[in-house]
């Protein structure tokens, strides 16, 4: 048994150990009801992290995810009275478009993804401020329940957020492992030049990955806004760090090529358990951001594939 053999299993081992540690500390944590509501609460973050996974998988990053989610909370709230459930479609299209533009700027104009997504994040933020009139908005309760009640209800004791997350997970998992797009994604992540040389249309693949990331960030924003019954240009602030942490802790390294959406499920659950444990162990909530920042550094350092980086810039 060497470290390289154990490494792929570390994420779920971490998750199980964390659950056990918190469970031993306070057995209330292990009640099914508690675990289920914990998972339901983390679903918006999980959906955003799913999208982030696709972009990190090809060695990029999407720093616009949080701004896109912010924007869609506003879009959903503003569009609800006029379009009803059609507001969801608007959100999805807006997310797809912003992601696709980021992808286009990255691949065709050679702007590194952290700059292009940061810039498109600025565009999304301006759009959110414009649409909201720079205020926090609230959804009308009857309209919300009519159009989006299905998102936040519950069946058989399981909140619908979890079903939504599961459907998106299965969808992305299918894309990742059963389609040529998924294979191509892996090829690009494993080595972009080789992928180009083998005749893949790398541009199309990368643009699609960014577009899907934008779309999933938009769905995350939509779900979050329905949960909180409102929208504002800063509602989803604080999502970006845990979303990146979830992807990396799950075992998809920053250099791309390995890992995937199932890893991100485990990573997101780790984030959820760490958050919950801070409540149970009465650690001040103001420490949370610092702790996740440090976890992020550790996660990057221990997963990154240094053989891929000739010089570390």
């Amino acid at each position: 048994m060497n470290l390289e053999r154990i490494k792929p299993h570390l994420p779920w081992i971490t998750l199980v150990s964390l659950v056990l540690i918190v469970g031993i500390g306070d057995s209330n944590f292990l009640r099914p009801h508690n675990l289920i509501s914990m998972v339901a609460d983390i679903m918006p973050l999980f959906i955003m992290a799913l999208g982030m996974t696709l972009v990190i998988f090809i060695g990029g990053i999407d720093l616009s995810a949080q701004s896109v989610a912010n924007m869609t909370t506003v879009v959903a709230t503003v569009a609800l009275p006029t379009f009803g459930i059609g507001a969801a479609l608007l959100c999805v299209v807006a997310g797809l478009a912003i992601g696709a533009i980021s992808g286009f700027i990255t691949t065709k104009l050679f702007v590194p993804s952290f700059v292009s997504t940061l810039a498109m994040g600025g565009v999304a933020y301006s759009a959110a401020q414009y649409l909201s009139g720079e205020r926090a908005l609230y959804m009308d309760a009857t309209l919300r329940d009519g159009a989006f009640g299905w998102m936040v209800g519950s069946s058989f004791g399981i909140p619908h957020e979890i079903f939504l997350g599961a459907v998106l997970l299965l969808g992305t998992l299918f894309l990742q492992s059963r389609t040529t797009f998924g294979r191509a994604l892996k090829a690009v992540g494993a080595g972009e030049l080789a992928a180009v040389a083998s005749g893949l249309s790398v541009t199309r693949i990368k643009v699609l990955a960014f577009a899907l990331s934008g779309m999933l960030a938009a769905i995350a924003g939509l779900l979050f806004s329905v949960k909180l019954s409102g929208g504002s240009p800063t509602l989803a602030n604080g999502f970006l760090l845990p979303a990146i942490v979830a992807v990396l802790v799950g075992g998809t390294p920053l250099t791309g090529g390995v890992g995937g959406v199932v890893n991100t499920l485990i990573g997101t659950l780790i984030v959820a358990v760490i958050r919950a444990s801070m409540l149970y162990f009465e650690i001040d909530a103001t420490m949370q951001q610092m702790i996740f920042g440090i976890i992020l550094i550790i996660a990057i350092a221990s997963t990154i594939d240094r053989s891929k980086l000739r010089v570390v810039k």
């Binding site: 920042g293 550094i297 990154i304 980086l309």
Partner: peptide, 15 residues
Amino acid sequence: LRIPSFMASLAMGFV
């Protein structure tokens, strides 16, 4: 730790 600077510094910024 040989981490690309954009990510190392982003994480340090969060910290």
